[in-house]
Design a protein around this nucleic acid. Structure first.
Lengths: 144, 144
DNA sequence: TATAGATGTATCAATTAAAGTTACAACAAA
DNA sequence: TTTGTTGTAACTTTAATTGATACATCTATA
C-alpha cells in the first residue's frame, strides 16, 4: 500500500505559500485550485502543518505563512506532520501471531529490529532534504 | 498510510516453511494457524511468492518448499513479490495538479526525483537483508 | 458595528484497498 | 476411488482516504 497523497499535497502547499507570498493572499481556495482538490482537504492539512508549527494560518482575514526558516524544515518534518500512523510505524504487522507456535511466538523479536532499520533508512533520507532545497529547484525550473 | 501486513505475513510464512520443513507438511492451514489469519489469505500470498519463483507449492498432495538458496532471497524480493502497487511507487502523488499554475505545472519535475531517492534508500536497506540472516536470528532465538 | 470573506470543524457520502469467509472445481498421492 | 489439499471465484466486512456540504466563528475594514 502506498503512502497517502497527503504528503505530496503538503509539500505542494508549502511551495505555493512561499512562491506566492508576495503576490497573492494564499487561501485554502487558492491552494485547492493549484493542487486540484477540495478546499476542505487543504484546510485539514493546514491544521496539521500548523499543529507541527510549520505554518501559521490567519483566521478571519485569511492566508497563511511559513513559520520557520526554510532550511530548518525537512521532508521528514512535513511527512510526520501529515502522516498520522500509530507509533509512526511504516510497516503494518499482522496482529495476533500464534503464541503457541515457536515462530509465531518469536516473529516480533526477529523482525521488529529489521523493520525499524529499514524505516530509519527512509527517514534519514527524508531528513536530508529541506524545503529550502525544494524551493531552489522549484524557482530554477519556473524561471527556465 | 502503512505498508500492508502482507509483507510481514510473507516473511512469517517463509520462516515457517524453513523451520518446519522436516517435521510437518506445511499446508496453508498449518501456516494460517501460525500467522493467525484465514487460510485463503495464506494461499493468495503463496501464489504471489510462487509467481516470484521464491517458493514451490504442491497441488493435490499439499505442502510447499523454498525454491532458492536462502541467502539469495532478500527482504526486497519478498516485498516486491507481495506488495503490488502500480509502478512499484511507494508514494501516492495527487492526481491532477493544476497545469495552469506554475507550481502545479512543475510539481512533478521538482518532487519525483526526491521521492525516488527516498524510496531507493529504503529498497537498498531491504536488499541488504537475506532470508538466511532472518533464519539465523530465528534459530538462535528459538533455541535460547 | 455591520459585513464580507476566511477559517475551523462536524457530518456524511463515495471510493478504494485489505482482509475475512464460504464454496467448490481441479488435482495428486495413497 | 477416496482423501486432503490447492487454486480461485465471489461476496462481505472493515478501515482509510478523499470529496462534499454546511455552518459557526473569527477578523479586517468599510
Amino acid at each position: 500500500m502506498q503512502i497517502s497523497s497527503r504528503f505530496t499535497v503538503a509539500v505542494h502547499i508549502l511551495i505555493c505559500i512561499e512562491i506566492f507570498k508576495n503576490d497573492y493572499k494564499v487561501t485554502s481556495d487558492f491552494l485547492a485550485s493549484s493542487v486540484n482538490v477540495n478546499p476542505v482537504v487543504i484546510r485539514r492539512l493546514l491544521q496539521q502543518l500548523k499543529k507541527a508549527r510549520i505554518i501559521n494560518v490567519k483566521r478571519g482575514s485569511g492566508g497563511t505563512d511559513i513559520e520557520k526558516p526554510l532550511d530548518k524544515i525537512t521532508l521528514l518534518d512535513i511527512y510526520n506532520a501529515v502522516e498520522c500512523v500509530e507509533n509512526g510505524e511504516l510497516f503494518h504487522f499482522h496482529e495476533n501471531p500464534n503464541e503457541s507456535c515457536p515462530v509465531g511466538k518469536n516473529i516480533h523479536s526477529v523482525l521488529d529490529i529489521r523493520l525499524e532499520t529499514i524505516q530509519k533508512a527512509m527517514e534519514k533520507e527524508m531528513r536530508s532534504v529541506t524545503l529550502q532545497d525544494i524551493m531552489n529547484d522549484t524557482k530554477k525550473i519556473i524561471e527556465s
